[in-house]
Design a protein around this nucleic acid. Structure first.
Lengths: 330, 330
DNA sequence: GATGAGACTGCCAACGTTTGCAGCAAGAGT
DNA sequence: ACTCTTGCTGCAAACGTTGGCAGTCTCATC
């Protein structure tokens, strides 16, 4: 079916080795024959067989990417940047979606691990011990999670949270409710801690509702809880929950940004489709992806680079969903 | 590094052939040795090398999927269902994102074609001749586009459009503006034709604005055009444009669903986050994906099955973004 | 003219798997 | 006791690529 080295070799009256060298190690072969081989190869439409190459090299030139939910708008930018960076470096990307199903996560990663050189796990929720074990079996980089003995790219939500709390305080809020993400989520812990610290620093009372799955529906559920507990300011685990909250509250006649302030996290493109637009803590999603690829590829090529953690900054993006609290709730 | 057939064979005192057979053709080997081999293989954590297998079989057990934009909420459900179905059938999925860059589309597909058994192209915008040519080189299934000589899964927007127009007419609209998608998009043509027919059937005047890229920003641009041309009812090429329109109009103080009616197409999850919620023509995205995989796998296994076109139905989902037009615009 | 160096190329083994073919042993039928 | 079948297993080739090693040829040097 496909054109092989042997066919090119035959057409050029040289051996397969020479063709192979001409195409991968151009200096090692006579300039004249090289150009001839290159011409014929192009003419015949030769493309090296990945399988053949992979068999002898032991590499697949493919990386795996496991995400919890492609439909969550937080991930597509990450996926895109992973793909773009990988493509630059001549790597293909195999993607798996766990559908937020924690139990499948490890299984999918293991399945992928057989056909890739390295793995990127985005926002994994599997137990730390398992992840460490996985990272011992092949190069793995974690996004949005720090794992012992493996490379990680994480975000530092402290600044963003600090800014968010200060923003609310400056508007007159003294009480903030956190709409928690999944109970065992690492980033939920990070965000809660960051918020907790920011609240303590600013002498703000912190309450919590949840946990909620990072989905719009869950946010709608959160909205009803919020409404019945007379909350004036809420920071959600992520934009999806925040958007669900806004949608539901607006539907029920509340004026978001006046009667209640809502802040999301991720600053996904959706933040701008609602009215008012969602104030959100910006997360540099594209950089998360490319940094992860860089880390992984370093680990693949430069034998044993230390497993570092890259930390990216966050900042608050103020839009219309936050405002001065009503008098009775200050 | 990885456990090979040979190691399992050595541990069992049999030949590699026997191990291979025991694991792939269980009936061909003695029950006793088979169970022994299976046990040892599991114990050693043996997993067949895809490269080795691929080399002899000529197959990769991988399918490629090319989408225009992962971040467009229309595609994630398709991607998910493609992955799910492929996984059921023991296929891996390689994904490429063209970033709406038409020129890259073919290049990405060709790149992928070297490492997959078949290809699924979602909403491609490449010229028909090129697509036909591609389909001659390897099995390809097109989603949201009909191509000569290749399998296709498309949607029939006629019913949905008919329902949409009837819905608007029943509310009192006599004029509809179509917010066109990309000029050379096949599905834009389909949608425009379906709308055109529905309008003719219902004696409604049809106008058009555009083209617009399927992005929220473009929708915002469309909103300003709409506002300056006193339109009371608009049907957008897709939800993203519709959402951008709504967002921008609301921001500028217009009451969507009262002063102006907006209808989207795709019925993406985002339709419910806005206020009012977006009336949209529902497209069975999940079925698009799984049908595409089924078609492709048929093509891969049952030698030469006829290249059929699967057509899926659409229907209108009425929400709050449509309503009775203001008196002066009837 | 013998020797050496250097440039280039071919041979061959190896990667891990599958599979046609042949070999072998055991049992059945005559 | 002989053949024939049946059931199981091993041998070896093949898939396409790479790379170590050795071979050939040319040319310069002494």
């Amino acid at each position: 079916m496909a054109v092989t080295l042997a066919e090119v070799a035959a057409a050029c009256n040289v051996s397969t080795s020479t063709v192979s060298r001409a195409l991968t190690d151009p200096e090692k072969v006579n300039a004249e024959t090289r150009t001839r081989i290159e011409r014929v190869a192009r003419q015949l439409g030769y493309a090296p067989s990945r399988a053949g190459r992979s068999l002898v090299s032991g590499r697949t030139d493919t990386v795996g990417l496991v995400v919890p939910d492609i439909a969550n708008p937080f991930f597509p930018p990450i996926i895109k940047s992973v793909q773009a960076r990988a493509r630059d470096k001549r790597y293909a990307v195999l993607i798996a979606d766990t559908d937020e199903h924690v139990a499948d996560e490890l299984e999918l990663a293991r399945g992928l691990s057989r056909q890739v050189d390295g793995l990127i796990l985005a926002s994994p929720r599997t137990a730390p011990a398992e992840l460490t074990r996985l990272a011992q079996q092949l190069p793995v980089v974690f996004v949005n999670r720090e794992v012992e003995g493996a490379g990680s790219v994480v975000i530092d939500e402290n600044e963003g949270m600090q800014e968010a709390v200060e923003h609310l305080v400056s508007l007159g809020h003294r009480r903030i409710t956190y709409l928690a993400g999944p109970r065992r989520s690492w980033s939920n812990q990070q965000r809660r801690d960051a918020l907790s610290k920011a609240c303590a620093d600013n002498d703000v009372e912190l309450r919590e509702l949840g946990p909620f799955e990072p989905q719009i529906q869950a946010g709608m559920r959160a909205a009803d809880l919020l409404q019945s507990s007379e909350v004036a300011a809420a920071i959600a685990y992520d934009d999806l929950i925040a958007l669900g909250v806004m949608s539901r509250l607006t539907e029920r006649g509340m004026q978001v940004g006046r009667e209640i302030s809502v802040i999301g996290i991720d600053d996904s493109p959706l933040s701008t489709v609602t009215h008012p637009m969602l104030t959100s803590i910006h997360v540099p999603a594209a950089e998360l992806g490319s940094a992860a690829v860089d880390l992984l590829l370093n680990q693949l090529h430069d034998d044993e680079t230390p497993t570092t953690t890259v930390k990216l900054e966050t900042r608050l993006v103020i839009r219309g969903s936050t405002g001065i609290p009503p008098e009775n709730l200050r």
